[in-house]
């Protein structure tokens, strides 16, 4: 069994959330880490390369950040957000990016089954959740995305830096005004879901899929300091409007 840390920071501020993920990405000595988190206030995150003006929803969220990872914008509300950070040589991420998505998404699909959602890779089929003009991740599907009921319900993106990998994931528990027509786990379960219980299911699935043992932990003092130092950039107007 490979040891991973499990860090939960539910209801954390947006700059801290992004700063801690960057701190974990950059620290080559950091152990493999799964973060389970949510946002306070609700936050719209832009993909790293997105143009600010291409995402009209920025004016309707409680806060806006730009992620280190690519892809489309996500409105982080009523969802479980998670990140995986480890070395690129880790068996979970070794090899082509597409293969690592397939492996991780297989584990996520297993977790979703606990809540009545039978998710599959999209393939080349258009989805009912696809749409133009919003810039939102959940309105644009790729073959590697997870969907159920013909709609996208999980968003994910990776950053690869100096032999390290940061994998961002977003599992939708409910909809928001900015993300209509998507698949939500709460709808499949037929009840409101707490991010923590979905996080527990994700941990079980990742443990089984990859033979991992997760140890609950808090960010170290050094990681917290790094997160506080790195965090403000993500909401800095110059960074938000860099494109």
């Amino acid at each position: 069994m490979t040891e991973w840390r499990r860090i939960e920071t539910f209801g954390a501020p947006p700059g801290f959330n992004m700063g801690l993920d960057e701190a974990l990405l950059l620290d080559e000595a950091a152990p493999p880490t799964l973060r389970l988190y949510s946002w306070e206030p609700d936050t719209l995150s832009l993909g790293y390369f997105q143009r600010f003006v291409d995402v009209p929803g920025t004016s309707q969220a409680g806060a806006v950040v730009r992620r280190l990872t690519g892809g489309g914008a996500i409105h982080h509300t009523d969802e479980l957000t998670f990140s995986l950070t480890t070395n690129a040589s880790d068996p979970v991420y070794r090899g082509p990016v597409a293969d690592s998505y397939a492996r991780v998404h297989a584990a996520i699909a297993q977790a979703l089954l606990e809540f009545g959602a039978t998710a599959e890779l999209v393939g080349e089929v258009p989805l009912a959740s696809d749409g133009e003009g919003t810039g939102m991740c959940f309105h644009k599907s790729t073959p590697l995305d997870l969907a159920w009921g013909g709609r996208k319900g999980v968003g994910s993106a990776q950053r690869r830096t100096r032999g390290r990998v940061l994998h961002h994931g977003s599992i939708k528990l409910g909809t928001s005004a900015l993300e209509g027509a998507i698949a939500t786990l709460g709808s499949s379960a037929g009840r409101p879901l707490d991010p923590a219980e979905v996080g527990d299911a994700l941990v079980r699935a990742l443990s089984e899929q990859f033979g991992l043992r997760f140890t609950p932990a808090a960010p170290t003092a050094a990681e917290r300091r790094a997160a506080e130092a790195l965090g403000p950039r993500y909401q800095d107007p110059a960074f938000l409007h860099r494109r």
Binding site: Y48, F49, V97, A157
Partner: peptide, 26 residues
């Protein structure tokens, strides 16, 4: 994303980024 001519880069420094559908790499 590539740098403009005139910029100085150090050995080992990130000079640009490339994005695929599912990953950004330095």
């Amino acid at each position: 994303d590539l740098p403009e001519a005139g910029r100085s880069v150090e050995a080992g420094e990130t000079f640009g980024e490339i994005e695929s559908v599912k990953a950004v790499a330095d």
